[in-house]
Nucleic acid binder design. Structure first.
Length: 920
RNA sequence: UGUCCGGUAGCUCAGCUGGAAGAGCGCCGCUCUCACACGGCGGAGGUCGCUGGUUCGAAUCCAGCCCGGACAACCA
């Protein structure tokens, strides 16, 4: 065995063996347990968020599997319509091509090719992270089966009237030339201006002496104004209601209307109404039956419904021109600086236009109601629970879902048009003809649009289980056990799976939803390519040199000017690159960071700490294996106090870890494992076995047996978190126990607390040992006595229990505390000494040239101070009549005992101090 | 503006069904001792955001406020 832990040597071979041996497939026995992977986009490679999420799912999956559940972790990927199309389009652009050059069919073929490479990379990454998914069931949202499910859902919803086609204002991305759903636009506050225009009011005789002031953030839209609105109760404008305005630059006559949407307090109290280019104005337009004048082309340039001089201008150019012309004609009142929310497409970053087009919609309310009810009555439970509020908040205000996208990559909408523009929906063209009795003589063309990616994602929990086919898998694993996902897609995905699952699979898609936070960098920044702070999980596992890291972070930047800054920051933060930490260390870090908070800051320092933890385990195993080499293991040897102690500690640890898993508290599970392995098994138990093994008597057999047993069980306990190192060490240990070691720890049973006896006596005995040893160490440490120097120790004022424990465990005590001798003594006969207290017993280390009395006096004084403060607090409580009369008896007794302990300790410390002082 | 989350040691975070302030990392000493220097031993470091209230007792419960964040919505 290597002296140091090196993950490179163990991780990949272990995974290959698992996969080859088919360890990831469901056992087919036991209570079903199923997790659907949130299918990653095939756009590129996995980031830290994916790695975190995969770790969480894998921990749950491995734990469930070891607990005997029939466990399926369903893998797959998402075609990610817009995102993937953009990636491939960018590749084409780099070759000087445009997707239109290729044509739809060739382009889609090219995307499929990209999907193969990208998808392959993603699977490879998932393997490196240790994901125990059932690869044989891998699905892709555009597989034949899943596409069939999509068509069936579309047709069924259409037949029920829950899908309709409508002309409405949509969020239009003028760069990608497609409609977006509300969720796909992100609004951010930006600096802009508020232009105040004078609109002339027409007299009865057609003149205009009066005018109104309207304010707008989008001057160019005035070319599409069809009214000006005021508040009905606004006395300033009451007389103007019903009169007309002559729209400058256009000459159109538009009415002044009254609508309570107008806020009289804001701006001038008059609002220009452009129903075709603003969502609020659209509503006003509907109420007042105003005409809709669309003034834009697809790419947001101005179309022919505006006066000639503006035609063909981009919206930005048109804005400048309109403002200039208004000023020229004396219609510009003033321009104020103004901060406003600007909606941008989440993929393109382009300012989104409210744009009047024909799109397909899902009527959502009838689907939302059951989905709300399911969470309300607990059929689906959010963890942490408060996320259900976020869910309700959105579901209660949900709008119809625009599902058509003007893209080439995705599920083409199963609808056909005849030449008159009538629409026919069906599974395919033949089906559409059959359903609507359309003869072959009528030409039909399929709708060019594809469906929103999230339409197919919404079916994922049952479409991957072969729905609409009623398979055994569907019956067994649906509803799934838990969904693990980020809060950022509760609306995009969770809510829609709920709606579709209830509608089509007849039940909720999952019993629980575990919502985790976002992985941020060490300073709390969101990780993004533009910020240059992304970390590739593989680089944490394998390590990466500085130059490669810089190259990786600055390659194919969308904004090249950030390159220098990113390079500098990277060189500063990782002067030596990133060392190899291994998967287990990374996973342990994720586990320990998985608290209930909203986002998690990823700190490489912690990965290093947990890599060290792996090394600790490795070396503990080395110790165990070295000491059990060739030894016959006797299972009947009588265990010593240390053996009984470590088993009872293990029992408590198993309880804690099990509880933590059940509550999705991976941080607690990780902490319990860390604490047990390092601070109990290694720090104390291993040390306690050393004298026993040296003595090589009967006790040594029990020690060897227990060392192995505990190591073996600990590997099972830690396996869900650290699958690789535990598998490797488990097999080495298992063979020592004389059992079959050809298997893997992953199909072994998870430890059960009940298998390990609770042993209060052992706990007390070892607590005594630790207490005395710690006392000696403290004197050693603070008096700067070499750790290896054997010390004589006197025990004064020992109780019966102290004496019997000394008799029983004196050898262990001497060895671990490195004592030359331990002697019971009376205070009177004790030489000048340094002192530590353990209960009422005093531990004395004679000074005799070793210890400086001045230093010891200072040390004692400090301790006395500390204890005095504590005692004052306790006396305060006990002196309070209300406390004494109201506090429960056990608390009161505890407080009294505490006061007594402190008092006696102080007395002793004072005695020692005066003894030391007498020497000065 | 609303909803939600957070404010505990230098940093990252546990603890929050109320009864003596915790971990990891970092820091300061000592130490390469026969599993491990990716180690061992010892130590320093906190008016638990602020103000009130409930209580014998509050980091923990309640109210208000301040600060930070996320998400919704929005006034042209």
């Amino acid at each position: 065995m290597d002296k140091a832990y090196d993950p490179k040597n163990i991780e990949q071979p272990v995974y290959e063996r698992w996969e080859k041996d088919g360890c990831f497939a469901p056992s087919g026995e036991g209570e079903p347990y199923c997790i659907m992977i949130p299918p990653p986009n095939v756009t590129g490679t996995l980031h830290m968020g994916h790695a975190f999420q995969l770790t969480v799912m894998d921990m749950l999956t491995r734990h469930a599997r070891m607990c005997g559940r029939d466990t399926l972790w369903q893998p797959g990927m998402d075609h990610a319509g817009i995102a993937t199309q953009m990636v491939v389009e960018r590749q084409l652009n780099a070759e000087g091509l445009d997707r239109r050059d290729l044509g739809r069919e060739a382009f889609v073929e090219r995307v499929w090719k990209w999907k193969e490479t990208s998808g392959g990379k993603i699977c490879e990454q998932q393997r490196r992270i240790g994901a125990s998914v059932d690869w044989s069931r891998t699905r892709f949202t555009m597989d034949d089966g899943l596409s069939e499910a999509v068509r069936k859902v579309f047709v069924d919803l259409y037949d029920e009237g829950l899908i309709y086609r409508g002309k409405r204002l949509v969020n239009w991305d003028p760069v990608l030339l497609t409609a977006l759903s509300d969720l796909e636009t992100l609004s951010e506050e930006e600096d802009g201006q508020l232009w105040h225009f004078r609109y002339p009011v027409l007299d009865d005789d057609g003149n205009h002496k009066e005018h109104l002031i309207v304010a707008t953030t989008r001057p160019e839209t005035m070319l599409g104004d069809t009214a000006v609105a005021v508040h009905p109760d606004d006395d300033r404008f009451k007389t103007l209601i019903g009169r007309e305005i002559e729209l400058p630059l256009v000459g159109r006559r538009i009415p002044i209307i009254a609508d309570s949407y107008v806020d009289p307090e804001f701006g001038s109290g008059c609002v220009k109404i452009t129903p075709a280019h603003d969502h609020n104005d659209y509503e006003v337009g509907q109420r007042h039956d105003l005409p809709l004048i669309n003034i834009l082309n697809d790419d947001a340039s101005l179309n022919d419904s505006v006066p000639e001089p503006y035609r063909g201008l981009t919206r930005e150019a048109a804005r400048k021109q309109v403002v200039a012309d208004m000023e020229r004609d004396g219609f510009l009142e003033r321009i104020d600086p103004h901060r406003l929310m600007v909606p941008r497409g989440d993929r393109s970053g382009a300012v989104v236009e409210p744009y009047l087009t024909d799109q397909w919609y899902v009527r959502i309310q009838p689907l939302a109601d059951p989905a709300i009810a399911a969470v309300k009555d607990g059929r689906t439970r959010f963890v942490p629970e408060n996320w259900s509020k976020t869910y309700f908040e959105w579901m209660n205000n949900i709008q119809d879902w625009c599902i058509s996208r003007q893209l080439w990559w995705g599920h083409r909408i199963p609808a056909w048009f005849d030449e008159a523009g009538n629409v026919y929906v069906g599974y395919d063209e033949a089906d559409a003809r059959r359903r609507h009795q359309i003869g072959d003589d009528v030409a039909l063309t399929q709708d060019n649009d594809v469906l929103d990616t999230w339409f197919s994602s919404a079916l994922w929990p049952f479409s991957t289980l072969d729905w609409p086919e009623q398979t055994r898998e569907l019956a067994t694993y649906y509803p799934t056990t838990v969904l693990v996902t980020g809060f950022d897609i509760i609306f995009f995905w969770v809510a829609r799976m709920m709606m579709m699952g209830l509608k089509f699979a007849g039940d909720v898609p999952f019993a629980e939803v575990y919502i985790h936070g976002l992985v941020r960098d060490e300073s709390g920044q969101k990780m993004s390519k533009a910020k240059g702070n992304i970390l590739d999980p593989i680089d944490i596992i394998d390590g990466i040199d500085l130059e490669s890291l810089v190259r990786k972070r600055t390659a194919s930047m969308m904004q090249p000017h950030l390159k220098d800054k990113i390079e500098k920051a990277t060189r500063k933060q990782f002067p030596k690159g990133i060392p190899s930490f291994g998967t287990d260390a990374m996973r342990f870090t994720f586990a320990s960071l998985a608290t209930t908070g909203r986002d998690i800051r990823f700190d490489l320092g912690r990965v290093e700490g947990y890599r060290n933890f792996c090394n600790k385990i490795w070396n503990a195993a080395r110790y165990v294996l070295m000491n059990t080499d060739g030894a016959a293991i006797r299972t009947d040897a009588t265990p010593g106090v240390a053996e009984r102690w470590i088993r009872t500690r293990f029992r408590a640890t198993v309880e804690e870890v099990q509880r933590a898993f059940e509550a999705y508290r991976f941080d607690r599970a990780a902490q319990a494992i860390y604490e047990f392995v390092w601070h109990e098994y290694c720090d104390w138990y291993l040390e306690l076995t050393k004298p026993t093994l040296r003595a090589d008597d009967v006790g040594a057999d029990a020690a060897r047996q227990t060392l192995l047993e505990m190591l073996e069980a600990t590997m099972r306990l830690a396996h869900p978190v650290m699958p690789f190192i535990t598998d490797d060490l488990w097999r080495r240990t298992r063979s020592r126990l004389g059992a079959d070691a050809t298997g893997t720890v992953m199909d072994q049973p998870f430890p059960k607390a009940a298998d390990y006896a609770e042993d209060v006596d052992a706990e007390h005995d070892v607590a005594w040992l630790k207490g005395v040893i710690l006392g000696v160490r403290q004197i050693r440490g603070e008096m700067n006595i070499a750790p290896g120097k054997p010390l004589p120790v006197l025990l004064v004022n020992a109780t019966e229990a102290d004496r019997s424990r000394l008799h029983e465990h004196g050898t262990l005590l001497k060895e671990l505390a490195r004592l030359e001798s331990v002697t019971l003594s009376e205070m009177d006969s004790a030489p000048p000494s340094a002192t530590a207290l353990h209960g009422v017993m005093q531990i004395l280390v004679p000074m005799a040239g070793l210890i400086d009395p001045v230093a010891e006096a200072a040390r004692l004084t400090k301790q006395i101070e500390k204890q005095r403060k504590e005692l004052a607090k306790t006396h305060g409580k006990l002196g309070n009549d209300k406390f004494v009369s109201n506090a429960p008896a056990d608390i009161l007794a505890k407080e009294k005992a505490r006061a007594a302990d402190l008092e006696s300790a102080l007395t002793r410390l004072d005695q020692r101090l005066s003894a030391v002082n007498a020497m000065l």
